[in-house]
Structure formats: structure tokens, C-alpha cells
Simulated scan of single mutants.
Amino acid sequence: MNRTRRTVGLLFGGCSAEHDVSRMSAANILRALDPEKYDIVPIGISRNGHWLLGNAAAPDAKSLEIPSDAADVALLPGRDGDLIVLDATNKTIRLDVVVPVLHGPNGEDGSVQGLLELAGIPYVGSGIMGSAACMDKDVAKRLLRDAGLPVVPFLSVTPGKQVDYQTATETLGTTALFVKPANMGSSVGVSPARSAAEFDKACALAFRYDTKILVERSVAGAREIECSVLEDHTGKLSASPLGEIAPAQSHGFYSYDAKYEDAAGADLRIPAVLAADVASRIGHLAVEAFRVLGCEGLARVDFFVDPADETTIFLNEINTLPGFTAISMYPKLWEAGGLPQRDLMDVLIGHALARHGRKRAVSNA
């Protein structure tokens, strides 16, 4: 069915520790979607997992709010791949495409993507496999390492396979470590550790958010470089100009507070000042990592660059649903590359619809 307007389901909130970041991203995306092209249906997921229709925030609000008095809704597969939203009045709302603005577990990990696949509805971003692989930093780093891409040396730790500070430092070859949950983003649960006491405290914090954590070698004074990768409706991949994040000395690293709580928490430098050949290599590595991990649509790829030798590059991690807040790097890097966020959303929705069409053609062959 050809229509000039599309009905877009905007999923936001969620049950992860990144709930608040999701609501900030969703507010920015809502403003970016062209009202001349799209009818938008906000669907908020509360912290306890209730799905609710509507948005209680003002148009210029920093975050979308989930209405406290809204009734739960049910999502069901409809005819011809439509997702049907059943609300309290039993009316149906057919969605042409979904933008899952959900960061972290229960949204960025393939779970919601599986629901949308079962419903047969187009959605923005990576599919089940790419989402799940990138969400688990342990799995992602193993795949990247096996493909020959440079990753920071790391250890995977579970409650049944713990290591102490001495073992970690001897294995990784440094007394300066970072500890993080394997399945989380936005720097939630991430801590540096330079002593046995700090290490034990950092592990305890990370285990609050996941049953598997990573212990990584700290790259002393590393420059934090980010690249946005975008896939268009034809499958062509493009790398954005690069950006650099310089955290304020008071934070030490790009923590959650530096990202979202402190307006002076970091200096975002776009474009990053790097030699042309180094910038080109980072862009190439970003696209290659995107392919290796089976990403689709969009991803932000984060790197560490050795300040003493910028040819020494480490791939840190990949975010398949990166932040879209007003200060987030993903849309900012594309704006620097000449693609405003309104046009960026058109590309992402165009990719979702085209991919859906290709998959249906294959399944019907």
C-alpha cells in the first residue's frame, strides 16, 4: 500500500538502567521527525515493564514523560505485517514502522527486535543477531578480535569465575584497570580501579547491573574518538566525520554524570583533530566492525587512540541504538557531515522499510 504519510511507533523508556537516557533521546527524535511525513504514536515502557500510550511532556521538554494515568496497551501482530496496538477502548492503531528508542537491556539487546520480527513490522536499527552481539561486550570483543580488529585486552568475569586484582593486573599487564557490566551502556556501572580495594568495589558495582562483567586494560590518557555509521535503503554504508570526547578532569573519564548530569562534564570536539590517514583508518575500522557484528541501519563505534602515538588505535565498543539526546554524538557527527537530524531520520526509516521489503521478498520466494 502506497501512502504519502507513515504512522511511526516511537518506543521509549524501558526496564533498563538507561530508562532516563531513552526518554531524553525520544524527545529529541520526536522533534526531528517531519510532521509533514509522519504521524507519531509514542509508546512508553515504564520501569516495571508496563506499555502505555501517549506522551505527557511539553513539545520542547528535555524528556518524554510516560503518562501516569494511562491504561496498559497490548501489542499484537496484525494483517500484512502491521503491529496493532490495543488500548482501553479496543480501537486499533496500525503502525507502518517502529523506532525503538530503547537503550540497554530489554530494548537494545534483540528482545524488542524479536517482537517486531514476529509481528512482521519494519523497525529502525539492527536485527536480533546484531543487536544481541553488540549488547554483550564480551561476545562483541571476541568476534572483533577473531576478525583481526584491534580491541583493548580484557577478561570476562562471572560470579562463578571471579578473579582478584593481582590476577587481573598480571593477566592484563597493567595496574590501571576499568571494570564494566558486559550488557549495559551510557557508562552505567563503569569504574576505574588502581588498587585491590577499588577493584573489589568496582566489581561489586558492575555486578549490580549484570551477571557478567568485563575487566579491561586502561589505555593511559587515551583520546576517546567516536564514529557514526549509517546504512541507507540500498545497503550502502557510510562513516561520519569523527568526534572526540575530552572529559573534564573532575570526572576522569566519560562517566554517566559527565554525559548527562554535568553540562561541563566533557568537551565534544567535532571534527576530531587527527592526521588524515589516521582518521581514514578509523572510519574504515568502524565500517568493518559494523559488518563483522552484523549491524544494520545505524551504530556508533567508539575508539581509543594512544595520545603518544595516534597510529595505535583500539576499538572500544559498538552501540546499535546510540543516544539521540540533544548532546549525543551520533546525530551531531552526521550534522557535521552535512546531514541534519530530520534528514537522518528519513534515511533510517527508509532503510527500515527497504530491509523489510527485501526480507519479505526472500521469505516469499
Score class of each variant (00 low, 15 high):
residue 102 L to V: 03
residue 157 V to D: 10
residue 91 K to W: 11
residue 359 K to G: 07
residue 71 A to I: 01
residue 322 P to E: 05
residue 125 G to L: 04
residue 18 E to I: 01
residue 22 S to G: 15
residue 107 G to Y: 04
residue 234 T to D: 12
residue 163 V to Y: 14
residue 50 H to D: 09
residue 261 E to P: 00
residue 260 Y to D: 00
residue 271 P to S: 12
residue 188 V to K: 04
residue 162 Q to V: 13
residue 51 W to R: 12
residue 328 S to T: 03
residue 339 L to C: 13
residue 121 I to E: 02
residue 20 D to V: 02
residue 350 G to D: 06
residue 96 D to T: 01
residue 106 N to D: 09
residue 320 T to E: 05
residue 361 A to V: 07
residue 70 A to R: 11
residue 64 L to S: 04
residue 153 P to V: 05
residue 335 E to I: 14
residue 102 L to R: 04
residue 61 A to G: 06
residue 311 T to D: 10
residue 160 G to T: 15
residue 108 E to F: 11
residue 111 S to A: 15
residue 30 L to F: 01
residue 46 S to G: 12
residue 165 Y to K: 03
residue 120 G to K: 04
residue 2 N to G: 06
residue 171 T to L: 13
residue 298 L to M: 09
residue 233 H to W: 09
residue 76 L to W: 09
residue 197 A to P: 02
residue 106 N to I: 01
residue 217 R to T: 10
residue 49 G to D: 03
residue 187 S to G: 03
residue 9 G to E: 02
residue 12 F to L: 00
residue 150 P to T: 14
residue 219 V to D: 03
residue 140 A to Q: 09
residue 120 G to V: 12
residue 254 Y to N: 14
residue 31 R to T: 00
residue 122 P to M: 05
residue 40 I to K: 02
residue 27 A to L: 00
residue 283 G to I: 02
residue 22 S to R: 04
residue 176 A to M: 06
residue 17 A to L: 00
residue 124 V to I: 02
residue 208 R to S: 15
residue 56 A to K: 08
residue 282 I to C: 05
residue 38 Y to F: 15
residue 212 K to V: 08
residue 8 V to R: 01
residue 144 L to V: 12
residue 257 D to I: 00
residue 25 S to G: 12
residue 224 E to W: 10
residue 241 P to E: 14
residue 8 V to H: 01
residue 295 C to P: 02
residue 266 A to K: 12
residue 121 I to M: 04
residue 121 I to F: 11
residue 313 I to G: 02
residue 131 S to E: 03
residue 108 E to K: 05
residue 147 A to Y: 10
residue 83 L to P: 10
residue 353 L to Q: 06
residue 166 Q to V: 14
residue 36 E to Y: 05
residue 95 L to Q: 04
residue 202 A to W: 15
residue 222 A to I: 08
residue 58 A to L: 09
